[in-house]
Amino acid sequence: MNTEFIEALEQIQKDKGISKEVLIDALEAALISSYKRNFGTAQNVRVEIDRDSGEVHVYSQKRVVEEVEDDILEIQLQEAKEIDPNYGIDDIYEREVTPRNFGRIAAQTAKQVVVQRIREAERGLVFDEFINRESDIITGTVERVSKGIVYINLGKIEAALGPNEQMPNEEYVHGARIKTYIVEVKKTTKGPQITVSRTHPGLIKRLFELEVPEIHDGVVEIKSISREAGSRTKIAVESQDENVDPVGACVGPKGARVQSIVDELKGEKIDIIKYSKDPVEFITSALSPAKVVSTEVNLQEKTAKVIVPDYQLSLAIGKEGQNARLAAKLTGWKIDIKSESQAKSE
């Protein structure tokens, strides 16, 4: 190796932000292994790369001892003193043993080490970028589907959309642009691993933040979300400004804002409900679109008994109990729904 190699490391330092010293230290460590492997030696060695010229030197190392038990690793004190009177017990005696053709081995090793370190550094930068985007929304392109997992191209890296994170009945076509929610970013031996979701309630929250300026600005707050992905979502919102209608802000002019989100979610129905600190009012609203006759709450047990008109019972409960289930999850209350005739017969 020569000065051109040192200049190349300096250029890598500028372009990739990887310290020249870090690369040289890694290379020196790798060259020790290369030397031992190629020259079949068990002796201790030190490799030194000249920081200016790029020249590589290999030194064998022996510990100075009183009595030698292993002449590969040790040298007797008397013998060491004949070389240099300053040697003492436990000092390290070094002798240069650089092979003639070691430059070729060094060049091959250097290429491997530098490529590996650049790859590690780039993976580190990608990890740093995406770890800060956990719980955020990201747009990517469907790359491929393998063993039920959809791989999404995010530009610098692929993200995995697992079977449990995919919306029912949604097709993932190669090349289609898609918004997903970043659930987790992990470091692995193969680089950063990003898990994304289309079913997470956080996706709803982020979509509303994108579409509704009042939410983005903090004027309207999302208090809770309950979701059965691909089918229906209920979202409770509250305004921090009495002049701003939170439900109207989320619906948008002629329903444009919420429709944009519904389109992104391939037709998933969204009920937007005004949050209330009054549990009776909140539970009544949460059962929308059903009309409620009366709501009684037990504050200690956090249960509610709701009476609805007979013709509204199936609507209040919903298909397979979905409306009632989502309302209970949204409010955090256990809700018992009965029709007027059922209530009278009790």
Rank of each mutant, 00 (worst) to 15 (best):
residue 3 T to W: 00
residue 8 A to Y: 10
residue 9 L to W: 09
residue 14 K to C: 00
residue 15 D to Q: 14
residue 15 D to M: 06
residue 17 G to R: 10
residue 21 E to L: 09
residue 23 L to Y: 06
residue 27 L to S: 04
residue 27 L to H: 02
residue 28 E to S: 10
residue 38 N to T: 04
residue 47 V to N: 02
residue 53 S to E: 07
residue 57 H to R: 09
residue 63 R to V: 13
residue 65 V to L: 05
residue 68 V to M: 05
residue 69 E to Q: 12
residue 79 E to D: 04
residue 79 E to G: 07
residue 83 I to D: 03
residue 84 D to L: 03
residue 93 Y to M: 07
residue 95 R to K: 15
residue 96 E to P: 13
residue 97 V to T: 14
residue 97 V to Y: 08
residue 99 P to S: 08
residue 100 R to C: 00
residue 104 R to M: 10
residue 106 A to V: 04
residue 111 K to E: 09
residue 111 K to S: 07
residue 116 Q to A: 04
residue 116 Q to W: 03
residue 121 A to M: 06
residue 124 G to P: 06
residue 128 D to R: 15
residue 129 E to M: 12
residue 130 F to N: 13
residue 131 I to W: 11
residue 138 I to Y: 03
residue 138 I to E: 06
residue 141 T to A: 11
residue 143 E to R: 15
residue 145 V to A: 08
residue 156 K to Y: 11
residue 156 K to R: 15
residue 158 E to N: 13
residue 159 A to Y: 05
residue 159 A to E: 07
residue 162 G to S: 15
residue 165 E to H: 09
residue 168 P to M: 04
residue 173 V to C: 00
residue 173 V to M: 07
residue 180 T to I: 11
residue 187 K to Q: 15
residue 188 T to Q: 09
residue 188 T to A: 12
residue 190 K to P: 14
residue 195 T to C: 04
residue 205 K to C: 04
residue 207 L to W: 01
residue 208 F to L: 08
residue 208 F to A: 01
residue 208 F to H: 02
residue 209 E to T: 13
residue 209 E to C: 08
residue 209 E to G: 10
residue 210 L to A: 08
residue 212 V to N: 10
residue 213 P to H: 10
residue 217 D to M: 02
residue 220 V to M: 05
residue 220 V to T: 01
residue 225 I to P: 09
residue 226 S to F: 04
residue 228 E to V: 00
residue 231 S to E: 14
residue 235 I to N: 11
residue 236 A to G: 10
residue 237 V to C: 13
residue 253 P to L: 05
residue 255 G to M: 09
residue 255 G to F: 10
residue 257 R to T: 12
residue 259 Q to C: 11
residue 264 E to P: 02
residue 265 L to V: 07
residue 268 E to Q: 00
residue 269 K to G: 03
residue 281 E to A: 13
residue 283 I to H: 06
residue 288 S to G: 12
residue 290 A to M: 13
residue 291 K to G: 09
residue 295 T to E: 03
residue 297 V to G: 04
residue 297 V to R: 05
residue 297 V to C: 07
residue 298 N to P: 02
residue 301 E to M: 05
residue 301 E to V: 04
residue 303 T to H: 06
residue 309 P to W: 00
residue 312 Q to S: 02
residue 314 S to L: 06
residue 314 S to P: 07
residue 319 K to A: 08
residue 321 G to P: 01
residue 322 Q to C: 07
residue 323 N to R: 03
residue 325 R to P: 10
residue 326 L to K: 03
residue 333 W to I: 06
residue 336 D to A: 01
residue 344 K to G: 03
residue 346 E to N: 14
